[in-house]
Design a binder for these strands. Structure first.
Lengths: 262, 262
DNA sequence: CATTGATGTTGCAATATGTGGCAGTGAACC
DNA sequence: GGTTCACTGCCACATATTGCAACATCAATG
């Protein structure tokens, strides 16, 4: 009510500080220009905020902005830098399919992690994931609600799995799901390493409005033992390089479209 | 001014307070100008409201408005560096209470993270936690099965919370639980920042065979708003330095024993 | 009708924010 | 290596917004 004609209310200092920390945890660093534009305040105001927080020892000021002290986990940053270009491109393409306000499911895996990283620009998303690292990463992004699916943790995947996870999954209404996979087999199907993984992914296809598989090129033409149920009902497969014509054709015949990320 | 009889349109104080809290929980902070415009009252009235609520300890006043307390808790990464030595000692003492084969619940928080780190020597444990970082850490330790409790992730705690978490918790038979807390109040009770947190911890006390609180000395004599249900049924409180005699005595009278880690 | 409690009004002090000038930094370029 | 140039940091001052206290107003109440 009261169609107040004043400009959109400015964020008070604590809110700015909160946002700064969220961005710091999500991205490791923030820039003065970026924050000034976001809050629609002058750069000086941001600089004063950063100075204050820096005096409190809560962040470090660097040229152009601020950085957190604790570096982002080394193991993760290393792994995600393998084939960084390809994964980032896949991530970007995937994020481009998401609209503000959607409920998004993110599978575990390094490629889906890249999708998560590309999604930080979007707002007002509800994220649903079984991956510890994805949850940890996205929970600090402002405007995102993250639901972690419970279950027994698989150390290899660093993600929950098992019956509890299937059960929790079934409670969500998911608009769009991004799944990883073990391989893209020569007959154009995504396959998996484990029975439980295949089952979980197959169910998600049935649950989600649209399901996309994200696979970097190292998975092409490999073979893993388990077919994923409902694969033909997936909306698409997002890859970073064009697969061999035979493989592409086999895939398209199954149903899903093929999206090649630049 | 405005002799017009429009009382019906005006919101009385309790209604304003209600709305203030609604906005606080939705956006973390509110501004005096915004509220004054919304309710069509003077800024002074709003300021008096905020002053009142602040005196009750229900919010914090900042320049231009008010902010909720909890999110201004220092970020996780920073909290873990405070009093690292004390936390490590607490962790060791806590791990000493655990025997091989037990089912262990670990709460979220930096001190419980220290407990997790001290527990890597033990074998054949089943860990149950809502904390993303604890799950991530312990899932790589051989001989440990880690169950992650699902739920909506609280970015400040980096842990799941909410109804799903309570629900998942109830399914476990826990031998020993280690819980954090917001403060050790002067009357010898552990208190919490949030309603949900207090509730969750209270239930765990009821569920677990033995429950210990782990609190480093920075929490002594502080005040946070919420009492933890069933606190008197906790087995003990593990701290890193001897609290004041009055505080220690108050605690012992409640029931739990006091364990001081070297 | 006096009292009480909530709210409005006003003036001034304190604080936050914006602006512009100038020096420093870093990266691309010759 | 040195130079240019866009960006950034820093300072001083101007402006806007807010805080505060003292007093005024109004309705309700006994």
């Amino acid at each position: 009510m009261s169609p107040v004609s004043r400009q959109s209310a400015r964020a008070l200092a604590p809110r700015r500080h909160d946002e700064i920390f969220r961005r710091l945890s999500a991205q490791g660093s923030v820039s003065v220009a970026e924050l000034a534009a976001f809050f629609d305040v002058s750069r000086e105001t941001i600089r004063r905020d950063l100075k204050l927080l820096s005096d409190q020892g809560r962040l470090g000021i660097v040229h152009g902005g601020a950085a957190r002290f604790e570096p982002s986990e080394p193991a993760m940053s290393l792994r995600s830098q393998e084939n960084a270009g390809g994964k980032a491109a896949i991530g970007k393409a995937a994020a481009g399919l998401v609209r503000d306000g959607m409920v998004v499911f993110l599978d575990s895996g390094t490629t889906t992690m890249a999708v998560a990283q590309a999604m930080t620009e979007l707002r007002d998303l509800t994220i649903c994931t079984a991956s510890l690292k994805i949850a940890l990463h996205l929970c600090h992004v402002p405007g995102m609600r993250v639901h972690m699916l419970g279950g027994e943790i698989d150390p290899g995947e660093e993600a929950a799995s098992g019956i509890d996870t299937l059960d929790a999954m079934a409670r969500f209404r998911v608009d769009i799901a991004f799944l990883g996979g073990g391989a893209l087999s020569p007959d154009g199907e995504v396959t998996d390493f484990t029975r439980a993984g295949a089952e979980q992914r197959g169910r998600m296809i049935a649950l989600a409005g649209k399901t996309y598989f994200v696979l970097d090129s190292s998975k092409f033409g490999k073979l893993t033992p388990l077919r994923i149920p409902n694969f033909d009902r997936a909306a698409g497969v997002i890859v970073d390089t064009i697969p061999e014509p035979a493989l592409a054709e086999a895939l398209l015949q199954k149903g899903p479209e093929l999206i090649v990320a630049a």
